[in-house]
Design a protein around this nucleic acid. Structure first.
Lengths: 211, 211
DNA sequence: GGGTCTCTTGACCACTCTGGTCGAATTGTG
DNA sequence: CACAATTCGACCAGAGTGGTCAAGAGACCC
């Protein structure tokens, strides 16, 4: 099948499941949105449940390939490490946001877990491993001494999360194309400099570490 | 009508609308969940749209009364001001979370706006006014000089938001009753002390300002 | 008791939408 | 042409929809 049509179908499937969850998703709306006949969907997927499972596998593979595999946990500086992770996630999200929104809705909604308990645990395991790796072997000696490292880690995490949530909220209002990415990344590196200034030890030499 | 039954009905209505949105909400499920006959719902509300509007008014009034009205914007210290706001919101949320979740879903979902455009703008206005008041006339002279005040305000906001999101995430997993509130508030004040230490000017006398 | 009122019920209605089927049409390939 | 792989959408039985309404239930007054 032409990959362009395939993509249209996946888009429609993920959009519908993400918006409505498993039970309330409508195969009629999916085929209409994808611009294909009803029979075609059930020619390639034997029923709704299998379609849902296939969509989950598609998304898990996509995110594994396009996001998780590209993470680099060797960096000891937590701000650099975390910011790379945020950037990688943002990049993958902007390339195709649907797998993220679909998996997010799957993670929240209780109902669909029984359709695919194995894939649900695969998702959970992915999240847990990522979180563990993200916080493992951080060079806490960079942090200032008069605050517990746990607090510093939390603050950095919360600030980064808040920042990206602000960005996404903006993106949903403004058009994606004419968004000013240059000034956004510039502001992000400003933010890193601030975090480093307030949460890290004072550096001896003057130049900042931000790339 | 007995207030206990009234509460049961509102709970069912808000739960259903919050979970499914206007279009996909089912009046059948509402009456079943509330434990009343179908006719009763349409005896007090002439149709689904009016029920939805009444639920919105109920929630807006609730939040106005139980949360917004109790905010205090006279405090010049931003951490104290914001923390009071967070505490007030948390308290109101824990007393009855449904109005918050219902209004949140209404704010996100595009579909129901046309049913109640006036109430949608009332909600937006409430949010905007709150945000404006929250950031107005903050005593920035408390902040350290070597970081732009805008950054400091953002960091405090993101940290508080992240903190409360963590709490809510915990609450959804653990039971609400046997949650250790004492250690939670203790940790919160620790967090304030940290924020003050890293984002404010050094204080002359040693004791912290946290109440 | 009877009369009248408010409150409450759930069977019932016409209608829409559901997941899924299937015979027929179309297309690609040789 | 034949043969197979695709693609379509009309069609199905069944579930669920918002809303109605005749029939009570219970309270209060005369």
């Amino acid at each position: 099948m032409e990959p362009e049509k395939q993509q249209r179908i996946w888009d429609a499937v993920l959009r519908e499941f993400a918006a409505k969850g498993y039970r309330d998703a409508s195969t009629n709306r999916i085929v209409e949105d994808a611009g294909i006949g009803k029979g075609m969907l059930f020619y390639y997927f034997k029923n709704k449940a299998e379609l849902f499972r296939s969509a989950l596998v598609y998304c898990l593979d996509y995110i594994e390939e396009e996001y998780v595999r590209r993470l680099d946990f060797s960096e000891p500086d937590f701000i650099v490490r975390f910011s790379k992770a945020v950037e990688a996630k943002m990049a993958a999200y902007l390339r195709n946001p649907l797998p993220f929104t679909f998996l997010a809705s799957f993670h929240i909604n209780r109902e669909a877990v029984e359709i695919a308990p194995d894939l649900y645990s695969r998702l959970q395991e992915m999240g847990n491993k990522g979180m563990q790796a993200l916080f493992a072997d951080v060079d806490v000696s960079l942090f200032r001494d008069d605050v517990a490292p746990e607090h510093i880690l939390n603050i950095i995490r919360w600030v980064m999360d808040g920042w990206s949530q602000d960005i996404i909220a903006h993106l949903e209002r403004e058009a994606l194309l004419d968004y000013d990415w240059e000034s956004t990344t510039k502001k992000l590196y400003e933010l890193f400099a601030v975090l480093r200034k307030v949460l890290y030890k004072e550096v001896q030499n003057g130049d900042s570490k931000g790339q």
